[in-house]
């Protein structure tokens, strides 16, 4: 319960960063923090007390495994988050080349 709430506090820090900051790089960082929190929340949902990693072994019977399905989902989400970060950074670099700033309040005129 406390763990869930702490994970959501981490999400809130990212949300605050996205909504409140004016620098594009800071906004990208906030989106990254939100992605971290969501991935961690998936794993927290699937955790079982005193569980073991969902990997079978030949010489021993592994019981009490944690839930493997959220882990498989989060594995996909992590790779997609890398692609999202890559694309956002490419957009930010282009905006810097065009306007000479990262400040979103100064990027308000058409230019080109």
């Amino acid at each position: 319960m406390v763990t869930y709430l702490l994970c959501l506090v981490l999400f809130s820090v990212g949300l605050y960063c996205v909504v409140r900051k004016r620098n594009i790089i800071k906004i990208i960082i906030g989106i990254g923090i939100m992605e971290y929190a969501i991935n961690l929340f998936f794993i927290l949902i699937g955790y079982r007390s005193n569980g073991r990693a969902p990997i079978f072994a030949d010489d021993q019977a592994v019981v009490n495994m944690v839930d493997p399905l959220p882990q498989a989902m989060a594995l996909t989400a992590i790779v997609i988050s890398l692609a999202v970060t890559m694309m956002l950074v490419a957009l930010a670099i282009r905006i810097y080349e065009k306007y000479g700033t990262f400040d979103i309040t100064k990027i308000n005129r058409l230019k080109g």
Binding site: G51, A53, I55
Partner: peptide
């Protein structure tokens, strides 16, 4: 949390995204 595959993947992705972000800043 007993997710070793995710730990490895997160480490790799973290290093890559750090390099990309440093290139931007």
């Amino acid at each position: 949390m007993k997710a070793p595959d995710l730990a490895i993947m997160q480490l790799v992705v973290e290093v890559l995204s750090l390099i990309i972000l440093i290139r931007a800043t």
